[in-house]
């Protein structure tokens, strides 16, 4: 198979960004900076992998940012609440992790249920749940910030900051999720079915594919990944507030599209999503590391790059 711009585009953009970054600042390629960028990409990255499946199957989920904030708040409250009985330690972390995963699964299931069984547009459903989760976390935090008990914070901190062989846990988890996602998308029956459903749900139905089940699973899978991302997020600052995860959904969607997945569904590429996430984090990182560009323009630069990435990919469509 010949390599074309469609495949090369995102990689090329990433390489260019890395070169630009390295030229601008000598610390750019330092282990510390690389670790920083990869770790902070992990939240959006883990979510974006799930988003790739949802979008590939012709859906959309706007609620993930709020959902992450809500789950983070819930996880903190569960751990704070059980602290007097269980005491600080890994068992309590386990309970928090379990709560986050369960909440993610349920939230994903709710979105999926409303989209498939109740037959409401995904855009509307998740716009609704987005508002619901955002309000809930504000309410739980009483308008302020939910903070994990200080003793517990020291216990849970390593989940974000430590790792093995000098690679931090968020990077490891992100990599594992991405590899699993890519494998399922390319070689799993589920990935194939998701693409078929997104491509044409009638064809999928007439081909004995259980369309609702596939759609539902994409949302549940995404919810679970939001839970995992939250588990990585909470140890970082040990707090959650109504400003947690704001606009994560759009960053995740942007990453998915930059990576070459079609917004209207039918074709998805998990490795592209990973590249997309890295591109977005690198833009921020490089702008922070360099002087000369007004920080007011960060958003504009991101916007231009998102649009460019999509144009690059469409070129090839027009030719082929």
């Amino acid at each position: 198979m010949k390599l074309d711009l469609h495949v090369l585009g995102p990689i090329l953009a990433l390489v260019v960004l890395v070169l630009v970054g390295a030229a601008m600042n000598s610390n750019f390629l330092s282990a510390a900076n690389v670790t920083n960028v990869l770790s902070r990409s992990a939240f959006i990255g883990i979510i974006a992998v799930g988003m790739t499946f949802v979008i590939t199957a012709g859906g959309l989920d706007l609620s993930v940012g709020s959902m992450a904030a809500f789950i983070a708040g819930l996880m903190i409250m569960v751990m704070n609440g059980l602290l007097p009985t269980m005491g600080p330690g890994w068992p309590l972390v386990g309970v928090g992790v379990g709560a986050a995963l369960l909440a993610g699964l349920l939230a994903g299931f709710l979105n999926g249920f409303l989209v498939t069984t109740m037959r409401i547009e995904a855009f509307i459903v998740t716009l609704g749940t987005m508002g619901i989760y955002r309000s809930l976390v504000t309410w739980l935090a009483d308008g302020g910030t939910l903070s994990l008990d200080f003793g517990m914070r020291t216990v849970i901190r390593p989940i974000y900051y430590n790792g093995i062989l000098g690679i931090s846990w968020p990077i490891i988890v992100f990599a594992l999720v991405a590899i699993a996602g890519e494998t399922i998308m390319r070689r799993g029956a589920f990935g194939r079915h998701a693409a078929a459903v997104g491509s044409n749900d009638q064809v999928a139905r007439y081909s004995s594919v259980d369309v609702n089940r596939v759609r539902m699973l994409t949302y549940v899978f995404l919810g679970l990944l939001v839970g995992i991302a939250t588990i990585m997020y909470v140890p970082r600052l040990g707090s959650a507030s109504s400003s947690t995860g704001v606009l994560w959904e759009l960053e995740a969607i942007a990453a998915v599209i930059i990576g070459g997945t079609m917004l209207k569904g039918g074709f998805g590429r998990v490795w592209g999503t990973v590249i997309g996430v890295l591109i977005l984090s690198l833009i921020d990182n490089i702008l922070n590391l360099t002087d000369g560009v007004s920080p007011y323009l960060n958003g504009a630069i991101q916007g231009v790059i998102i649009i460019l990435a999509v144009i690059l990919q469409r070129e090839r469509k027009a030719e082929g």
Binding site: R192, A195, A196, S199, N200, Q202, V203, A204, R205, Y206, S207, S208, V209, G266, F267
Partner: peptide, 18 residues
């Protein structure tokens, strides 16, 4: 076209979908 085949996909994916 509307119910039988995924027009934007290759023959292999279509053949084995069911």
């Amino acid at each position: 076209k509307a119910r039988g085949l995924l027009l934007a996909k290759g023959m292999r994916e279509n053949l084995t979908l069911q």
